[in-house]
Design a binder for these strands. Structure first.
Ligand SMILES: NC(=O)c1ccc[n+]([C@@H]2O[C@H](COP(=O)([O-])OP(=O)(O)OC[C@H]3O[C@@H](n4cnc5c(N)ncnc54)[C@H](O)[C@@H]3O)[C@@H](O)[C@H]2O)c1
Ligand SMILES: NC(=O)c1ccc[n+]([C@@H]2O[C@H](COP(=O)([O-])OP(=O)(O)OC[C@H]3O[C@@H](n4cnc5c(N)ncnc54)[C@H](O)[C@@H]3O)[C@@H](O)[C@H]2O)c1
Lengths: 231, 231
DNA sequence: CTGACTTTGTGCGCGCGTTCACAAGCGCGT
DNA sequence: ACGCGCTTGTGAACGCGCGCACAAAGTCAG
């Protein structure tokens, strides 16, 4: 499992009243299932078995079934799952039905790429604000949005907004603090720094160097094995 | 743990001869430790305790010590770890000492951002080839590199190269296959698709939509709790 | 040299996630 | 109407990783 992010507040309710608690590992796979389902739907399939869906999603079929059972989505024994209904179910669980607004801070190399990316909007997520500290960049038009100054943060944050940090590492903690102060409780960080957030705020990170270094490790290990253990 | 990637070949050696096998979860943290160590080194610190390093890295100190013990790196009891020596150790373990070449396929929005990013080169990783299928883009100069055509893949791949896929999802599997055919055994995929690779090839993925959707889930859940459970 | 303090390295229990394997359930052909 | 085969949902076992807590080991003062 990817332990990079954790939600410390998930256990806040001592009594799991009626809403089933979905394991974090399952949540991390729901988007994958959703994408697989869209592929199948575009392909014209109306029902799908756990085996077939698991194949497309690249996971074990038993895992898939257990995951889906967590969100109470019932398939039909002997038949499988209704694709359209399951898309609805998973989308609802992920909160994608009511459009989730995304606020992007830092319109540099990476921020520009993110802003111009159409893959988010197609699935209920839309970047609807670009912020930067550089006065020269403020006012610039990118992908139909106008870059605004970071000081206007409070004006663009609405309830339930997700913050994305694409600033240099040096400024990341400061930007993070401002996002939290503005009421943002979900943050995605691209800067290669460890950020600290108060309880109740979800923080995830994407670290490209880290991924490459992990691959480098395995590559290095393979080379060592190939040279030292071919026997 | 981040279960998104797994190395199926790690168990290839039935007898763990002398090289300790490092748990995947530990490998995933080594880059974080390395970055923390560089911060401390730049700050002038020569030695550091597990407690202090864990603080900077944002992890439990016991976990840090256990991780470091896996790679045989010995600290000094009562003192701590020698920063410079530990940087050397971790870098060696990650295979960063011999410069690892990175081949980037797909020079679009995202590929351009990656190519222009200086954060890789600073730590032993350098993108040294840009490839694209679009003839209009071939020949273009980006960050000191010339974009070459994908057909020249075999010419730019050297032993131990890491492949990065930044093409549309539609082309990802094809590009992946060509990378594997060219001898690449470590691949980082940015396209939102499940790729299949033969055994012995390490595949990791970075999925930005997925991260946002996970945050969306938690945000959605928070909203539901705030509305339904304030008693 | 001794004793007290500091810090590493690790044994152990706990909880989560994954997987197998199977019973329960549903549709369909006869 | 009725079983036959297919698929779901889940009980249970296994393995991994995390974190506490402590003994071993080294440093430093006197
Ligand atoms: N470019 C990549 O491909 C890449 C890859 C991996 C990681 N990253 C990380 O992503 C982050 C951004 O990378 P980049 O290449 O876009 O950097 P960049 O320098 O091109 O852009 C950074 C942007 O952030 C803005 N900024 C700086 N301080 C700010 C503040 N306090 N508030 C608001 N905006 C501020 C700057 O004006 C600039 O526009 C960096 O942390 C980098 O390490 C980038
Ligand atoms: N831009 C982003 O911020 C972002 C965010 C998340 C995910 N992604 C994913 O990253 C990938 C790239 O995104 P992008 O915005 O850069 O897309 P893009 O369309 O801007 O660039 C894609 C590039 O790949 C090249 N290409 C296409 N087919 C190819 C092939 N067979 N061989 C070699 N090159 C080929 C194209 O010529 C183009 O230059 C996509 O899969 C996208 O879903 C991008």
């Amino acid at each position: 499992m990817d332990p990079s992010s954790l939600s410390e507040d998930a256990l806040a309710t001592p009594a799991p009243r009626r809403q089933a608690m979905v394991p974090e590992a399952t949540v991390a796979r729901l988007p994958i299932y959703l994408r697989a389902l869209h592929v199948l739907a575009d392909d014209g399939q109306t029902t799908v078995s756990s085996e077939a869906l698991a194949e497309v999603a690249g996971v074990n079929s038993a895992k898939l079934r257990k995951d889906l059972s967590h969100l109470g989505s019932y398939g039909t024994r002997g038949v499988g799952y209704d694709v359209a209904h399951l898309i609805e179910q998973v989308s609802a669980e992920l909160g994608l039905l009511r459009h989730c607004s995304v606020v992007l801070v830092g319109v540099g190399n990476l921020g520009r790429a993110l802003a111009g990316y159409g893959g988010f909007a197609s699935r209920g997520l839309a970047i609807d604000a670009l912020l930067d500290a550089d006065r020269n960049r403020v006012g610039e038009q990118i992908a139909g949005l106008t870059v605004r100054h970071i000081d206007e943060l409070c004006d663009v944050v609405s309830k339930g907004s997700i913050g994305v940090i694409a600033t240099p590492a040096q400024a990341a903690q400061q930007v993070c603090d401002r996002l939290v102060a503005a009421g943002v409780t979900s943050i995605l960080n691209f800067a290669p720094t460890v950020l600290s957030v108060p309880p109740g705020v979800d923080l995830r990170k994407v670290d490209l160097s880290l991924e490459l270094q992990i691959l480098s490790f395995h590559e290095h290990r393979k080379a060592a094995l190939a040279q030292g253990a071919p026997v």
